[in-house]
Computed example of a mutant assay.
Amino acid sequence: MRGWLLAAVVLADLGGASARAEDCGKNGEGFNRWLNSFKQVAILDGVSAGAFDAALGGVSYDPEVKRHDGGVAMFGHNFAGFAASHVTPGMVARGKAELKRYAEPLAKIEQRFGVPGPVLVAIWGQETSFGGDNGSFPTYTALATLAYDCRRAERYRAELIDALMLVERGIVQHPSQLRGAWAGEIGQTQLMPSAYLMFATTPDGTGTPDLVHDGADALASTANFLKAHGWQQGAGWDEGEPNFAAILQWNSAEIYAKTVALFADRLAGR
């Protein structure tokens, strides 16, 4: 369900190594040669050889990721049908239970960022069924495959560098075990690596956030993202209200944003 939260990253002129890393492909042919050249790009960008090898050593091109990317379906044009299948009575009941269970951290989060719990829990529910399904694709394999593929190589090479920085900084300690969505999103609310680096936080801003295993940290990081993208405390979030634009920054598909807003309305008792 996630849109691609991809930050623009300008890579420095890396000479010959950069030129070689400009190669791309539409299948696995040439992937290993490209990956070897990309290692030099990553090192010049501040990633150690050890972090690169820990994340990408032995990684191979994944045609399943390519198939998902080539056949990705948009949300369509039928909001009523989409919302009916994603804001079910069962989902609403579960969401209300999570609001109660996470009442304390959600209160801290709203105090810090001004984003109400119903909106955060609605996104959480839509993204991963409240942390129940973060995705099963090996994250570094998926990102490397998309970074090599010609369709969106520049975007994903930037994301791959950011994902490697998560290893370099010790945020991801076991990269081979990290699993997420086929497009490289990580954690219980599905942040891209660039967004993880920029917005990961805990409810009170102390300690080391863990967006994969800690729901409260994932909710806090989502609120941080929304605040940075224009969320206005106390304003409405439905279509036509000020904060609908911030939800669109989370995911630019209007049907998705309207579904999140509707879900949040139900959770808030509207």
Rank of each mutant, 00 (worst) to 15 (best):
S176I: 11
A195G: 05
F113E: 13
P118N: 00
S252G: 03
I186T: 08
T128Y: 03
G30P: 10
A220F: 10
G16H: 03
A97H: 10
D214N: 14
K66E: 14
Y61K: 00
G58Q: 01
V72I: 15
A51M: 01
G50R: 10
G205Y: 00
Q173V: 09
L191P: 14
E185K: 00
G230S: 04
K96E: 09
A42N: 02
L44R: 15
Q190C: 04
Y156V: 08
E22N: 06
I109S: 08
Q233E: 12
L143P: 09
P116H: 06
P138Q: 11
V119K: 02
L146C: 05
K26D: 15
V72K: 04
A216S: 09
D69A: 15
Q232R: 13
A12N: 09
I161D: 06
W231L: 02
D162F: 06
R270D: 05
K227I: 05
M74V: 02
K108S: 11
P116S: 03
V72C: 02
H229A: 02
F130K: 00
W237Y: 15
R151I: 10
S136Y: 15
Q233T: 14
A228P: 12
G46I: 07
R33S: 11
R157P: 01
A183V: 11
H68G: 02
T128C: 04
G180S: 13
A220K: 10
I123Y: 14
G236V: 04
E185W: 00
L146A: 07
N243A: 03
G205P: 10
E159K: 03
M165G: 06
C24Q: 11
W182A: 07
E241D: 08
E29M: 04
L5M: 14
P203Y: 00
I123A: 07
G76D: 05
R33W: 06
L146R: 01
G25A: 05
S60Y: 06
E239A: 11
C24V: 09
A200R: 13
M198T: 14
